[in-house]
Write a protein that binds this DNA or RNA. Structure first.
Length: 365
DNA sequence: CAGTCGTGGAG
DNA sequence: TCTCCAAGACT
């Protein structure tokens, strides 16, 4: 239990040595910053892309996908001129597909209305689709040196701990976090400072088991890692069954695929394997079984091998949505993450759809 | 403004 | 195995 004598919590910002905090944080960051692909330049398009990809997505997941995406769409103009289908294909498996659609729309807007130059202030950036309260100052500070603070999940956690503000999302303290972040901001190096705050949260001030002994700003911290966490929603379970049907046309292998409706709330317009009613196949022999969790639902997935009877059921269920797709073209489709996983595991998916200049290595098999 | 939107990896 | 949740945005 916190001590009631801790009377400084209400106006904690005042009692913190902001200048010292900034200095120690900056020194630590210069010595310990991870080398990440998006830290190799300040090119606005590249920083922008990285910020969108990193939304609710781990650094380790993003690194390769970021490089591949840049190979495929090297510039803002290249992205703007692409078809949405191809943008989604490059995003396949990353999740939160509205990010890819927004990115694409914003690129088209910037190309047309801004002479292909990204706006340079947080306020202007904020009006672009997909750029919100966090991403706008991130781009503005990193690319254009605008002295604006940001609060992402990392910064929020760092500030709550350093200032001992508790975790109640509805508390007035929560609303003042941006002011606190602004107070701490290094206005001469805003981009570096903002990244340092996030880096601290991502590598030292971890949600569970923070590494306080390694923390460069431990002496400024009121809680020393004590931090309550709120309970999460429990996961639900749901079973699902998919059909994996292939056929040969001469030497060409084809796979039966299905396109999700444009009005679907999840993964609209993306491709997946034809689904079958799970209740009919409780005891069927399974080609592949796996679990796939989406938001707060665990999907227990069974994939069945093709039989004529199953084809009939699928045809009745989905009709014209079913399309035979050439196996070699599958990696150019915007596949759902689950479809990608299944096809990958069945060895039906070849290397990523990236044509590397100067790398004409042939497909294996 | 609370709900919704994906996914994979760590512990 | 199961829970947690990551550089949020949008409605």
């Amino acid at each position: 239990m916190p001590r009631a004598e801790n009377i400084k919590s209400a106006d904690s910002g005042e009692s913190l040595d902001a200048a010292g905090f900034r200095r120690d944080l900056r020194k630590w960051y210069k010595a310990n910053a991870r080398e990440l692909p998006w830290r190799e330049s300040q090119d606005p398009y590249r920083i922008w892309l990285s910020e969108i990809m990193l939304q609710q997505t781990r650094v380790a997941t993003v690194i390769d996908r970021y490089k591949e995406f840049l190979q495929r769409f090297p510039t803002l103009v290249a992205l703007a001129l692409a078809r949405e289908e191809d943008v989604l294909a490059a995003w396949s498996g990353l999740g939160y597909y509205h990010r890819a659609r927004s990115l694409h729309r914003a690129a088209q807007f910037v190309m047309r209305e801004c002479n292909a130059q990204l706006p340079e202030t947080a306020a202007e950036l904020r009006s672009l689709p997909g750029i919100g309260e966090y991403t706008a100052p991130a781009i503005a500070s990193i690319c254009f040196n605008e002295p604006v603070a940001l609060v992402d999940g990392n910064v929020e956690r760092v500030l709550l701990r350093v200032l001992s503000l508790g975790e109640n999302k509805r508390s007035p303290a929560m609303k003042r976090l941006h002011e606190q972040a602004t107070m701490l901001l290094d206005v001469r190096n805003p981009g570096t400072h903002n990244q340092a705050m996030m880096e601290l949260g991502a590598t030292i001030c971890l949600p569970r088991n923070p590494k306080c002994s390694e923390c460069p700003v431990q002496k400024y911290c009121k809680t020393q890692g004590e931090h309550e966490t709120t309970a999460r929603k429990t996961m639900r379970s749901q079973e699902s069954v998919y059909l994996l049907a292939t056929r040969k046309k001469g030497t060409v292998t084809e796979v039966l695929m299905m396109k999700r409706g444009a009005e679907e709330s999840q993964m609209a317009g993306m491709w997946e394997l034809p689904s079958l009613p799970p209740e009919l196949f409780r005891n069927s022999e399974v080609l592949l079984g796996l679990r796939h969790s989406i938001t707060n639902t665990n999907y227990y997935v069974r994939v069945l091998a093709s039989k004529p009877a199953l084809m009939e059921i699928a045809k009745n269920e989905h009709g014209d949505a079913l399309v035979w797709k050439r196996q070699k073209m599958l990696n150019t489709l915007p596949l759902t993450g689950l479809a990608r996983k299944v096809l990958q595991r069945m060895d039906l998916l070849h290397r990523p759809p990236v044509h590397l200049p100067g790398n004409d290595r042939q497909q294996i098999e």
